[in-house]
Design a protein around this nucleic acid. Sequence first.
DNA 1: TATTTAAATGTAATCGTTTACATACATAGG
DNA 2: CCTATGTATGTAAACGATTACATTTAAATA
Lengths: 339, 339
Amino acid sequence: MTTINDVAKKAKVSTATVSRVLNNSDKVRPATRDRVSTIIKELNFVPNVNALGLQRKKTKTVGLIFPDASAYYFSEIMQGINRHLFKNDHQILISSAHDEEEEIKTINGFVNSGRIDGLIIMMPSARDYKGLIDQLKNEIPVVFIACEIDAPYSTTILLDNYNSAKEMVHHLSQLGRTRIAFIHGGEHNYDARERHRGYIDARSEYQLDESEELEVMGNFTEASGFQATLALMKRSPAPTAIFAANDAMAIGAIEAARVLKLSVPADLAIVGFDDISLAAYLDPALTTVHVPLRRLGHLAGESLLKNMNMDPTERTTEKIIIPLKPVIRRSCGSEQESA
Amino acid sequence: MTTINDVAKKAKVSTATVSRVLNNSDKVRPATRDRVSTIIKELNFVPNVNALGLQRKKTKTVGLIFPDASAYYFSEIMQGINRHLFKNDHQILISSAHDEEEEIKTINGFVNSGRIDGLIIMMPSARDYKGLIDQLKNEIPVVFIACEIDAPYSTTILLDNYNSAKEMVHHLSQLGRTRIAFIHGGEHNYDARERHRGYIDARSEYQLDESEELEVMGNFTEASGFQATLALMKRSPAPTAIFAANDAMAIGAIEAARVLKLSVPADLAIVGFDDISLAAYLDPALTTVHVPLRRLGHLAGESLLKNMNMDPTERTTEKIIIPLKPVIRRSCGSEQESA
DNA sequence: TATTTAAATGTAATCGTTTACATACATAGG
DNA sequence: CCTATGTATGTAAACGATTACATTTAAATA
């Protein structure tokens, strides 16, 4: 690996001068600058990031912690983050962990090792991280995605799951469905809980059937949506609509309806949440809630970068809630078709 | 940020002793070790990675370069890589770039900056990287995924796209389909090209219709599969089967068939490639080729780590080809149903 | 107890940058 | 031609760890 010394020697200048050329700061005589630049290119010299980090206490790297599961969610969000950070010459260091303990250890390592300048935490299943957060706040800026953590001096980005879920239930009720079932995504997932809460509140607000029988637990997979639907359709009276907490489960539900020889939406309306790219290509096309994942990622990257370039004393606590729009397609039994 | 000096001072020992405790090497008196360890925990001391990297010339970080698109592929593979590396206490630095020029620059930066100890390049659209590869080989170990690069001293992991595509065509021909169309994934994608090659060779090998009319270009999206199918069904005679180069396009094709009031598989068999999780839940369930992405990622991580722990002079050129298995479901018109 | 020997600890150079400060050089003014 | 002044360059100390080598301390031996 070529170092600044190699360049300095070959250019017959001191390392200080090379450094000045690299950072195109100060006054360097044009002739010298050219000579040094040429040699830098000649030797394909790239400054050592460890030395840089040690000296500047900045690494131009942000950490990204994400859960094991939710690969789809993750990759889309990450692409959004990456686009923005790449433009600003920053790198992303990723880590996913299985349990909370591992996560805390990882975060601690990230933060206190001088490895990163900022951190994005995507942890829908987070519980109580108070202690950790207190550590975080003075060190580096943090952005939380889909965590119901009330962390000072950090940014939290949330989807407006609650209101969109309500809106979806409202839409179903407008179409005359009064017995609406819900397939839950998992007790330990923030988004799933919020969607469920919206469902529950809407149910009572719009005076729909409120039996507990209408709620069943899934785990965000097609298979769980399939099983859940089989179970739900054994209730009597059977539900006339199913609201799945995500599209994958809705797809499982549609398949279950097919197996049960039920027509969707005539016999049973089915709606999902996420608007994955193929939702429009299902039969029937799936009514769902569109979640702008790339934009979410973009916002996260943007907010983080902003805070990284800010004096720590000026940082504020920010909460961004992204409104979501239902996408009405055929599976809910609505006549209209919208983009 | 607490440093080794803070620890040393508080424990009334030299930094050398603290370092020895950290690396639990050498002989440190148990009493001293305990005292130092306690203080390390007390101060929540984590060694600075930049200092470590500078000194040890190892960063316990591997780079991962991936294309802008293929989010689904990417996230699955990445999870596979991450699982393995996390266990071995390594971090992943990711970067995606738009064009080849950007990619080369990124790689150059990664390799020559002392940032990473190994590199995984996922670049199905790679063309001619000879120059770059020559740079790479002496620096750090590299694993290529889905690149048809013949790089010495590196590992290349490929899917057996060619043979599986042939097998799929063979299967269709066995079912009596002789006019099989192909929806291409894109000229600049290695996997897509290989699948196409398999299709072409199978077509001639099994004496099927070989008209050029039967090939149409897509771009791996549902929408392109949809459009491609509309176009294909205008040929006369129309194809009796469509082989889409990935599942997303197959889904688009199924939807197109629906619009055209064609029954799948009776009128038109449709098969895909990838076996995404919901393929089994489509109507009809999609016959496709299963691609073990996590395993691919795992293999990549494993191979890279192995090479990183190897004396550079002992490194070999390795090529791993992952065999793929067709998953026969209903969309091809086969009676049998397999896992 | 004095001496040898081994074990524990400390000192200081090193890794590759940046940057305050010191110094050399060039230009202009007298 | 000499000095003043500003500009270009060099010197060396940091950043936070590791580690050869030196030194101190403790244990073992006589």
